[in-house]
Design a protein around this nucleic acid. Structure first.
Length: 367
DNA sequence: TTTAATT
């Protein structure tokens, strides 16, 4: 037998408001520089389509930001659904937690909490648990695991249709990796009290282990939903002028930045209409035709990212309406990857449109 | 039988 579920036990999970509280620590050092532990926040469960600009705007409404970053996939440029905000004033960080934690944005409820100091020991501390009794609640699961360490988040996956019914599968993130290791040793293959079957406990996969094909499928599904579902959202606007090309900066070589470099992301978004000219210089320029008027840069990242290194994307827009004129360009570093992307995406149906994709022909300006 | 939590 393994573990008792003691019903009176209180969990100390930092899932809810205000996240992790930091015991007692200096706020301001003698030289006047701020201690990140009181100013640096992590924001989780952001809507997939939130941009860096929107993220900055939302948190900038609280107070002056020292730096902020929406974390994105290095290859596809897609948001990973979380980000960091470092305020100048610790009071603003506190205020951001109090006013923005729990805020509902589209389908998500965002979580705002203090970021733990970054260190190797907190990485890979996420566990995947399966074979859970269907009756086990999230709280039950936390109680089962909490004997091995401090739980940062937990989740039980539920059936989509019969909403609320457990799939017997969940996740537990510990504060430290070694706590997660101990939980595996202690609980993998064990039967929770009263359960008929043993549970499986292992390290979780990285959530973006998706193949190019899977990404295309996902993209297609989200695009298709746009045309079939009763989607009347009036929700997405953080009322910024997010209109013009947000040509996301992509640094192709993993430069070793000093930690917490004051360089903000925005300072890297300087690529404009550079290298849009032919298969020379920085890479292979690809012409994408039949984009919808609503298309934006992110759709190009999503389409081409899975095939390899993408250094630039651009949607061509009408100057006055700011709608896409039906085409755009993508620059890829490697010929093979570009050729594969073209072979795969030419004729690809995106929503109700069939894309035409080819290397850009060198009919200089004006076609 | 795998969700978007460490810059």
């Amino acid at each position: 037998m393994v573990t008792q579920i003691i019903s009176t036990m209180e969990t100390q999970v930092s899932n809810g408001p205000s996240g992790t509280s930091l015991p007692n620590g200096p706020v301001i050092s003698t030289n006047g520089s701020t201690d990140d532990s009181k100013t640096n926040l992590i924001v989780n469960y952001l809507p997939q389509n939130m941009t860096q600009e929107e993220f900055k705007s939302l948190f900038g409404s609280i107070g002056e930001i020292e730096s902020c970053k929406l974390v994105r996939d290095k290859i596809t440029g897609q948001s990973l659904g979380y980000g960091f905000v470092n305020y100048v004033d610790p009071n603003d960080a506190d205020k951001a937690i109090n006013t923005l934690n729990g805020l509902k944005l589209q389908t998500k409820t965002i979580k705002v909490s203090y970021a733990r100091p970054s260190s190797a020991s907190i990485r890979d501390a996420n566990l995947y648990v399966s074979g859970l009794p269907k009756t086990m609640s999230q709280k039950d699961m936390e109680q089962l695991f909490s004997q091995y360490g401090r739980i940062i988040t937990s989740r039980i996956l539920v059936d989509q249709v019969t909403a609320g019914i457990s799939r017997g599968v969940g996740f537990i993130r510990f504060d430290k990796r070694n706590e997660a290791e101990e939980a595996i040793k202690g609980l993998n293959g064990q039967k929770p009290l009263g359960a008929a079957e043993p549970i499986t406990v292992k390290f979780a996969n990285n959530p973006s282990q998706k193949t190019g094909q899977a990404l295309l499928t996902q993209l297609y599904q989200t695009a298709a939903r746009r045309y079939t579902g009763p989607l009347h959202h009036q929700t997405q606007r953080f009322r910024l002028d997010n209109l013009l090309n947000a040509s996301y900066g992509v640094k192709s070589s993993p430069t070793l930045f000093p930690r917490f470099s004051p360089i903000t992301i925005d300072s890297m978004t300087s690529l404009a209409g550079v290298n849009l000219t032919g298969p020379t210089g920085a890479g292979w320029c690809i012409f994408v035709y039949n984009l919808s008027p609503e298309a934006d840069e992110s759709v190009l990242w999503q389409l081409f990212g899975p095939f390899g290194a993408v250094t630039n994307v651009k949607v061509i827009r009408d100057f006055t309406t700011n709608k896409c004129k039906g085409f755009g360009f993508v620059t890829m570093t490697n010929y093979d990857e570009a050729a594969m992307a073209i072979a795969s995406l030419n004729g690809y149906r995106l929503g109700d449109r069939v894309l035409q994709v080819s290397f850009k022909t060198s009919k200089q300006h004006k076609a």
